[in-house]
Computed example of a mutant assay.
Amino acid sequence: MSRPVDVVLNLAPVEPEQLAALLGLIRPGGVLVNTTVWMPAPTDEERDVRGIDLFVHSDAEQLSHLVELVDRGELRVEVARRVPLAELPALHADAAAGALPSGKVVVTPGD
């Protein structure tokens, strides 16, 4: 059996039962951080395990700066796959099945 961890960071959309099961991996007093917007992070009050929801607000100035870094070659992003927006449901299914490739997946507006 693996040892409990201090923090679990959930980045993928999962079923509520799967998210709740992550609490069992965390030591008493630890934290479950959830970045998905469709459900809140559960807590385990008996073991003092907190659930935290973390969402990002896009900032146009910061995004422009990142583009400049990419353009200058100072920031490299490994794009593993490009997916048209129409295929987004299949992409979510792949994510839920743990079948995404290593690297970033870019969703494009069309074919």
Results as ranks from 00 to 15, higher is better:
L54K: 11
V56E: 09
P40K: 01
G103D: 03
H65W: 01
P16K: 03
A93R: 04
R3H: 14
S102N: 13
I52E: 11
E78W: 08
N34V: 05
S2D: 15
L85D: 10
S58A: 13
V14W: 03
H57L: 15
D94S: 06
T35H: 00
R27C: 06
A20M: 07
V7M: 03
G73L: 04
L88R: 06
T35D: 00
L100Y: 02
T108C: 07
L25V: 08
A12C: 07
L85I: 08
V33F: 00
A86E: 13
P109G: 08
N10Q: 09
L54C: 14
D44R: 09
N10R: 05
T108A: 08
H57T: 15
D48T: 15
G24E: 12
P13Q: 04
T108L: 05
V79R: 04
R72I: 11
R72V: 12
A21N: 04
A86V: 05
V33S: 02
R81L: 04
E45M: 12
L100F: 05
L63F: 02
D6M: 04
N10G: 06
R76A: 15
I26K: 09
H92F: 12
A99Q: 11
A93T: 09
S2L: 15
V5D: 03
A95M: 10
D111N: 14
R3I: 14
G24S: 05
S2E: 14
E78V: 10
G98P: 03
G24I: 00
V105Q: 09
A97D: 00
V107W: 00
R50W: 14
G110Y: 12
A99G: 08
A41E: 04
P4L: 03
V79E: 01
D6I: 11
Q62G: 14
V79G: 10
P13R: 06
L75V: 02
L22I: 11
V105R: 03
A60N: 09
I52Q: 12
D44Q: 06
L19C: 04
P28W: 03
A96D: 03
G110T: 11
D44C: 00
R72F: 07
L9Y: 03
L32S: 06
H65L: 09
V49S: 05
L91Q: 02
